[in-house]
Design a protein around this nucleic acid. Sequence first.
DNA 1: AACCTTTCCAACCGCAACCCT
DNA 2: GAGGGTTGCGGTTGGAAAGGT
Length: 351
Amino acid sequence: MGRAPCCDKNNVKKGPWSPEEDAKLKEFMDKHGTGGNWIALPQKAGLRRCGKSCRLRWLNYLRPNIKHGEFTEHEDRVICSMYASIGSRWSIIASQLPGRTDNDIKNYWNTKLKKKLMGSTTMAGAGPPPRAPRQNHHQHRPVLLPYSSSPHSNYSNFFPGARALLQQSAEPLTLQPQDHYMLGSSGSLNPMANNNGASAVQLQMLHATAAHRQLQVKEECGSGGAMIAFGCGDQQSCSSSDATQYAGGHYVHGGRHHGKEMSFDNNNGYSAYGMYGAGAGAVEQEHKLSFQLQHQQEQQQQAQLDYSYEEIKQLLMTAAASGGDGSGGLIHDPELIGAHAAAAAGKLTMM
DNA sequence: AACCTTTCCAACCGCAACCCT
DNA sequence: GAGGGTTGCGGTTGGAAAGGT
């Protein structure tokens, strides 16, 4: 038995919004807001539209301060880096780009940015990627990016061009306020769940302004709770010693960085991780140096990080073939997701 | 000019989370 | 805690516009 429809589908208008409808909705929203109920709004506003449709129209088009038009290079890089880190969590990505909607970003990614990345990819040994024969117009399903079974993998591996694009910028690597990420969704953390309760997750967050400034979120979920660790890009060096530990719904800061909130450093142009309170300045200096070293190391590693098209294809096919449940290793435990969401939203707000 | 192909984006749909009673 | 309604999200689609032949 299906659920009841949210509105009388026979009695609602579909398709593009007319200027009159826009005006009605805008006027109503200006005067009354949603009134806490989108479903009832159309009737109140005198619109023959589904509440969902009104909501979408408002959020994606009529809302004040919506930015339309070309995406800037900075926005490109934010999108790329976040996509490389968290995948298609468009709402989270949108939250970092004031004035942009998730729909906008999704469309932009699917129609332009993805191609741009693929095009800029230096396919090792494969040359420029052959233009894929156009499939059925409406079959351009986005590639499902599986959470790889490799603890050191991340989404950027599937779009090696992302690295190139992120690194090609010659501008000073200055962190801008809008670069600050907020992990605010259950989906922002994708533990590679396994069945014995000792799953491990590694979410690498490439910083918007520089791929080599990776904020690695390493999460280890065990029966006793989950741990989220923020560390430098050196994957091997991340351990609980410099971690923000999350267990049983609470974060416990361990290691040498102490404080209550995770933050980014706005002034020094790099990501501070788990760094708070007195003494943070010295630690920042230390990490600036470590970032410089790390940058050099990552440049050396760069060649090894690029995948050929064949390799990408194989990765995707392997991902499709494995995981009979089709999960691709994504977390399914609602409780864990909920805990992550709450923790992420409440605790991981970049200051 | 006509036709076909491709690109782009607004809008829709279904699902799951969330909220309220 | 259960159940139903609402909201938010991400994937998909329809169709107009642009580009190519």
